[in-house]
């Protein structure tokens, strides 16, 4: 476990370094955004110095890493507030949306994928396959407005955008969950179809257990291993902010904050958000590894 944590520390350091240098390479100058074009050269240099942008990139990187280790992600250049505060304000909304979308994925994908595998080449399987195909083909930026037209404008059941009431989360969560559900359904279905024809499944059936018992007790847990890996990646993607969905529905998560930061060349904010996203991915992967080991002890032994 200690080794695993140490490995992840190096990954994190790599992410910090990569993001820092990539951000510095992006064209555009935050001083321009802050002062406009009217400022004199002296004003620009003064501001550059006050922001620490006059130092060499290596100096800036080393002080950034030291500050990050102390929990200080710096101040947003444009909002003039600590990056940690800005991220903390947005993370709850991102978590809410991610958890509900993930719940939709799990609640629909596992029963539907299992049903499709059990009804292989029957009507139910075809319907599930069409659903999965649609889910993967329809982009969020189209689906979101279509759901709004249907449920907010035509039926007037749900609000269009914002995050004031619990109803506001439904459409963005469904939009996000739809494509991810489709991917999970396909993955679970194909994984189950492969497993259902394994020799050990035949053995399990030969022991005299009911088909449903064999299916849920032996097939599904084994088929869940690749699905769990996939779902963990999807959860990571959800927690890192669903940029398009957040923008369409004005959901105040870290995805829309990241877009603003990139557009305005707010370097500390970009770096802070990417760092938080990397930490979330690392934590999710760690939890997934533990879960996989719990479902299939051979995985832990092999690793």
């Amino acid at each position: 476990m200690l080794r695993a944590l140490l490995d992840r520390f190096w990954v994190l350091l790599g992410v910090i370094t990569l993001v820092f240098f990539l951000t510095a390479l992006v064209p555009g100058d935050p001083v321009d955004v802050m002062l406009g074009e009217r400022a004199t050269g002296a004003d620009r240099e003064a501001l550059r110095a006050s922001l620490g942008l006059d130092k060499s990139i290596v100096e800036r990187w080393s002080s950034y890493v030291i500050n990050v280790m102390q929990g200080d992600l710096g101040n947003s250049l444009l909002k003039q507030r600590p990056v940690t505060d800005l991220i903390q304000e947005r993370l709850p909304a991102t978590f809410q949306l991610a958890i509900l979308s993930f719940a939709i994925v799990v609640a629909i994908a596992i029963p539907l994928g299992s049903y499709a595998a059990r009804k292989h080449q029957q009507l139910g399987d075809h319907a599930a396959t069409v659903f999965a195909l649609l889910g993967q083909s329809i982009p969020n930026f189209w689906l979101g407005p279509m759901l709004v037209l249907l449920f907010s404008i035509y039926f007037a059941w749900l609000p269009i955008s914002g995050n004031e009431t619990w109803q506001h989360i439904i459409l963005p969560a469904v939009t996000l969950g739809f494509s991810m559900t489709a991917i999970a359904v396909r993955m679970l279905r194909s994984s189950l179809l492969e497993i259902l024809h394994q020799d050990w499944m035949r053995t399990a059936r030969a022991k005299g257990g009911a088909e449903s018992q064999v299916f849920w007790r032996h097939a599904v847990p084994n088929a869940m291993i690749p699905v769990l890996t996939l779902l963990s990646l999807q959860l990571g993607a959800l927690l890192s902010g669903a940029v398009i969905t957040e923008v369409v529905f004005s959901w105040p998560g870290i995805g829309s904050l990241l877009i603003d930061a990139i557009q305005q060349r707010d370097y500390p904010l970009i770096q802070g958000i990417v760092l938080v996203i990397a930490v979330l991915y690392i934590v999710i992967n760690l939890v997934t590894d533990v879960l996989l080991g719990w479902i299939d002890p051979r995985i832990e032994t092999q690793s």
Partner: peptide, 18 residues
């Protein structure tokens, strides 16, 4: 003042009265 970057959604909000 509510923020909505997407112009279509802003129009829909106005049409619906949000």
């Amino acid at each position: 003042f509510v923020v909505n970057k997407d112009p279509t959604m802003r129009v829909l909000k106005l049409l619906k009265g949000e």
